[in-house]
């Protein structure tokens, strides 16, 4: 009992500093709303608590998917984010049944144009090329516009010699765009090969969830790969595997901690430490002339 109390108190202290950064008016709006269930430990958490804790479960440390706007607020220097390719949209890209409606709905509910937001920002004064995926937008799936925006950003990072940081959150390739979305995997990977050859630094941050065609392309190609705690990361879907294997998979399967143990990621970093970690890593790659 006692240790649990101290742990909680410790966690609260950790977040106290960050609390001041949270928009107060925004918080008021969340105060009366219904609590969310943590998908990892099934504890109900008020939206207010969640917001205060950077969308991390105060009970089990599960890192909830984060919207782009919140992520930018947590990660980059204030007012430093300059968005690129904001006008690129998938509206009218094809006439796959219900797809256009789905896009419009996602745009409406997220205020975003697409599942990835790209731009240039500063992290503790260092300029970086930054891509942030948002799982709320059609499961963060990668269609042609997502692939193109990421590729363009890699090319900018290459040309300007900026470190590249991509925060992935995606269910994989976007099935409504079929084969053309599959080939966004080879497009982004090809661009990264060039960036790599020219000595560019790419830090990949895997957030919940990173699976399918995104994990099997740019997400797994970082010079350094960091994951948030307890994020789902993998290639094939759990149900597909269980069907093939005819057995139940352990709870920890395809989680960040599992990937760390198997040797596929470098580190697991708590959301509150992510900015400092990225900032330090960039400094460690400073090329001396």
């Amino acid at each position: 009992m006692n240790t649990q109390f101290y742990k909680r108190k410790e966690r609260l202290n950790l977040f106290q500093k960050l609390f001041t950064k949270v928009d107060k008016t925004d918080l008021k709006n969340t105060q009366d709303s219904t609590p969310l269930m943590c998908p990892s430990c099934n504890t109900p958490i008020s939206q207010y608590d969640l917001k205060v804790h950077l969308s991390v479960c105060p009970n089990c440390n599960f890192h909830f998917s984060l919207g782009v706007q919140e992520r930018i607020a947590q990660l980059v220097d204030e007012k430093s984010f300059k968005e690129l390719y904001r006008s690129a949209k998938s509206n009218k890209i094809n006439d796959f049944p219900e797809y256009q409606k789905k896009i419009a709905k996602a745009q409406d509910s997220t205020g975003l144009q697409e599942a990835v937001t790209t731009g240039i920002a500063e992290i503790n004064g260092k300029t970086v090329a930054l891509a942030i995926m948002d799982a709320r937008f059609i499961m963060g799936s990668m269609g042609q516009i997502v692939g193109e925006k990421i590729t363009r950003l890699i090319e900018v990072a290459d040309k300007k010699k900026y470190p590249l940081i991509i925060l992935s959150a995606s269910g994989g390739a976007r099935m409504q765009e079929g084969i053309l979305s599959l080939f966004q995997m080879s497009k982004t990977a090809s661009a990264l090969a060039r960036f790599d050859e020219h000595g560019g630094l790419y830090i990949s941050v895997l957030t919940h969830p990173t699976t399918g065609g995104v994990s099997a392309s740019f997400a797994m190609l970082g010079d350094i790969i960091i994951a948030e705690p307890k994020a789902l990361i993998g290639f094939a879907g759990r149900r597909v595997i269980e069907k093939t294997m005819n057995e139940q998979l352990p709870e920890a399967f395809q989680k960040s901690e599992f990937l760390l143990e198997k040797g596929f990621i470098d580190a697991i970093v708590h959301r509150k430490d992510l900015k400092t970690t990225l900032s330090n890593l960039i400094l460690m790659h400073k090329v001396s002339s």
Binding site: Y85, I145, G147, K149, T151, E177, Q184, S186, K187, S190
Partner: peptide, 8 residues
């Protein structure tokens, strides 16, 4: 491979 799909 760069040219596959739409451009922006």
């Amino acid at each position: 491979f760069r040219d596959i799909g739409v451009k922006i």
